[in-house]
Amino acid sequence: MHPITTVHYLALSAALLLIGTIGVLTRRNIVIILMSIELILNAVNINLVAFSHAAGQVYGQIFAIFVIVDAVAEAAVGLGILIALFRNKETVLADEIDLLKW
């Protein structure tokens, strides 16, 4: 039985980041985009916690908690915007919302 090392954590984090990024870039539904953003943030959190553990310090874990709070706030604001947008545009698809172009 191999012990779980920092490299494993980093690999998981990279995978999550990749999945999240691809989700943000490719999925049309904004709800899913928001979820993908959560994946990216959690990939960062894993990184922070992993390095914190490896260094034997708690600063990274504290910072991770900040990021979780930030993610919550971001989700709340993002979903609020999404609902307002839906009320106006009757859609949640990101490619149909392209008002800010030249």
Partner: peptide, 17 residues
């Protein structure tokens, strides 16, 4: 430059990435 400004956030995100 105008062509780049499509109004689609995902495109922008793609450029960022």
């Amino acid at each position: 430059a105008c062509i780049l400004q499509s109004g689609r956030v995902q495109t922008y995100a793609f450029f960022v990435v």
